[in-house]
């Protein structure tokens, strides 16, 4: 289904993906749409906020699995610095935790690279028009009830970024440094940095206490 563009000026889209072919494919596709313009491309999220500012992008299409800075941290940062910019995840990873992290970091949509290009175009339009956009696969997960995962208001967990909450949950589940790094596609050093940040924000000084905290706060069901 195609939504007819009703916007006064084209939507300027910044595409971020480490696959150059994919970026070129998006360029070719967006070139056919009179209401969508490719504002620029990046192959990492390093300097994302600056590029958004420079390019005047109003919508950002973001892959998740890229080298460099953590995507969710970068998204969180973008949301704070440019709240008017609307980010949509475009990824091959359809995972509950990524979906949760993306939404918590301020994403407006979560689309799959398995979707038809028309769906991506339609998603960009919906977000530009003020609606959320999810792939059919993601829509079902988003609408399913979850249990025991919400952060209670007033909890110190609100001090943590979505990535940090994700890592804290994995620590609570007993996963080790290497395991966490493998799961989130980051280096063990990145995991160490996140853990140090978590411990500082929560004023907790050892891993065992961190794990207990995660369980107490309901991040992990036992």
């Amino acid at each position: 289904m195609m939504m007819m563009a009703t916007l006064a000026k084209p939507v300027r889209v910044l595409c971020v993906d480490d696959h150059a072919m994919l970026l070129e494919g998006l360029r070719a596709r967006f070139d056919r749409e009179p209401d969508i313009e490719l504002a620029g491309t990046l192959t990492t999220v390093d300097g994302l906020a600056s590029e958004v500012e420079r390019s005047g992008a109003t919508v950002v299409l973001l892959d998740i699995d890229m080298p460099g800075e953590d995507v969710f941290d970068a998204l969180d940062d973008l949301h704070r610095r440019h709240p008017e910019t609307r980010a949509i995840m475009l990824t091959a990873h359809i995972r509950d935790t990524y979906i949760d992290s993306a939404i918590a970091a301020g994403a407006w949509g979560y689309l799959s690279k398995s979707d038809a290009p028309d769906t991506i175009v339609e998603g960009v339009r919906k977000v530009a028009a003020g609606e959320l956009a999810f792939s059919p696969d993601v829509e079902e997960r988003v609408n399913a009830a979850r249990h025991g995962r919400a952060v209670k208001p007033g909890s110190k967990l609100t001090l943590l970024t979505p990535r940090e909450q994700q890592i804290l949950r994995m620590i609570g589940m007993g996963q080790g440094r290497q395991e966490i790094a493998h799961a989130i596609h980051r280096s063990p050093k990145t995991v160490d940095a996140h853990r140090a940040s978590i411990m500082e924000k929560l004023a907790i000084h050892d891993r065992v206490e961190l794990a207990r905290y995660a369980i107490r706060e309901g991040l992990v069901e036992v």
Partner: peptide, 12 residues
């Protein structure tokens, strides 16, 4: 990652 751009091109 490879198929998506191919599909974009095919759409075009």
């Amino acid at each position: 990652n490879i198929l998506f751009p191919m599909r974009c091109r095919l759409d075009v």
